[in-house]
């Protein structure tokens, strides 16, 4: 199934976070370091604010890779609970089968 816009946006965010992670960490280190002068920390914080929206890790959300749903996701399989059930019953997820005893 082709990904919907929310999934595409999430993919964009993931790549943005990956590309800017090291630079952001460096600025975070300076901005949060209390042993550095306040002016330097302030400048670092201003630099952090110039990063785009899709460079922050908090914009990344695990979504269903099959349906694009954002809630009820089983992260290990990247599937929503319903898609997980469908796939598991169809035997498409290795090592998962319906419990019966």
């Amino acid at each position: 199934m082709s990904p919907n816009i929310r999934v595409l946006r999430d993919i964009k965010a993931r790549h943005g976070v990956n590309a800017n992670e090291i630079a952001r960490r460096a600025y975070l280190y300076v901005a949060r370091n209390q042993s550095l002068p306040a002016s330097v920390r302030y400048q670092a914080q201003l630099q952090l604010n110039t990063f785009g929206r899709y460079t922050r890790p908090s914009t990344v959300k695990n979504r269903c890779s099959e349906s694009g749903k954002g809630r009820g996701i089983m992260s290990e399989f990247a599937l929503s609970r319903f898609q997980f059930r469908l796939k598991a019953r169809a035997g498409e997820i290795p090592g998962v089968k319906k419990a019966s005893w």
Partner: peptide, 25 residues
């Protein structure tokens, strides 16, 4: 107990695992 910001340098980089979340289509 001054904050040194070391935790931002010590933390694991998340990017490489983030971009592999969705299976490649």
């Amino acid at each position: 107990s001054i904050r040194t910001g070391a935790k931002y340098l010590r933390a694991r980089l998340k990017g490489p695992s983030l971009i592999n979340y969705y299976p490649q289509e």
